[in-house]
């Protein structure tokens, strides 16, 4: 297996000219980044921080103002490199009159899937996205979640090495979002590299191995998720059946050992976990 990073960008800068007077707007500012293979990589940041622009540059859809990049070792985002990449853009829109199956077949043709393997590839991608049953319906009748899932199916139909997902769960309910999360994990288990671009931190935390945080076009943090989240100066002990007396004794023992108890609290489950448990079994 090659050790070349899936994506590298070096000193990448992108300026847009806006308005009649051509005012310069810097979307990406001297970004240097390397995305390793075989991981789920989260590219985080608020709206307008330059995530999507970076991905578009890497895919050859937008030309950089300065800097360089490589996609699967290719410095020009050539067709050969793009053939090994699957891409789901933010808020995807597809031809409404095509059925889901026709859309995935169309994308498979464009991605160079050979004719004898076509039917199998289309059905596999639909199954992966849990869209096999709805595949005969026109895309125009799909819900937001189904659109995202059919978008995912078209992105992976040609069995790509690298899958780039731009806000794949935007506007999707937690159940659909969970399904997409599971699909992402499955792709990682199959050895693909997944770049997940999102501002939904909970989801990123669930599936990503590594994250980069961007703000105003710049990289502000990058590293393994467990490393960047860990606070080495604090500790958490979770216990059950703690009586008030035992709690007081524990606090006294910790104080005697020179530790300072900052707070004692009941752990909360997330609303997302609660919602998922309450509505499990419901689909789109």
């Amino acid at each position: 297996m090659t050790t070349t990073p899936a994506i590298t960008v070096e000193g990448l800068t992108k300026d847009f000219r806006v308005g009649l007077r051509g005012l310069k707007l810097r979307a990406v500012d001297n970004l240097t980044l390397s995305i390793p293979r075989g991981q789920v990589y989260g590219l985080l940041g608020p709206n307008g921080c330059g995530k999507s622009t970076t991905l578009k540059i890497v895919l050859g859809l937008v030309a950089p103002t300065a800097g360089s990049f490589s996609l699967l070792g290719d410095a020009a985002a050539s067709a050969a490199a793009r053939a090994r990449v699957g891409f789901l853009p933010e808020a995807p829109y597809f031809h409404r009159f095509l059925s889901g199956r026709e859309l995935v077949r169309y994308c498979a043709q464009l991605s160079g899937v050979p004719a004898p393997a076509m039917d199998g590839a289309v059905e596999r991608a639909l199954a992966l996205a849990d869209m096999a049953e709805a595949g005969a319906r026109p895309v125009g009748t799909y819900s937001k979640g189904m659109l995202q899932r059919i978008g995912l199916a078209q992105a992976v139909v040609h069995d790509p090495e690298l899958v780039i997902l731009d806000e794949p769960t935007a506007g999707v309910d937690p159940v659909g979002s969970g399904a997409i999360g599971r699909m992402i994990r499955r792709m990682r288990d199959e050895g693909r590299t997944v770049v997940l671009c999102s501002h939904l931190l909970g989801q990123v935390e669930e599936v990503c191995d590594r994250v980069a945080i961007m703000d105003r076009g710049r990289l502000v943090l990058e590293g393994r998720l467990d490393e960047v989240l860990a606070r080495r100066d604090r500790h958490q002990i979770t216990v059950e059946n703690l009586s008030p007396a035992a709690r007081e004794a524990a606090e006294a023992a910790l104080a005697a050992a020179g530790a300072r108890v900052v707070g004692v609290d009941h752990p909360r489950q997330s609303l997302e976990d609660l919602f998922r448990r309450m509505v499990s079994g419901s689909r789109d």
Binding site: V85, P89, F94, H95, I164
Partner: peptide, 14 residues
Amino acid sequence: DNRTALTLLAKPVG
């Protein structure tokens, strides 16, 4: 405008 071109041109389509 509907950005379907984004999906298509990210594929190996010149």
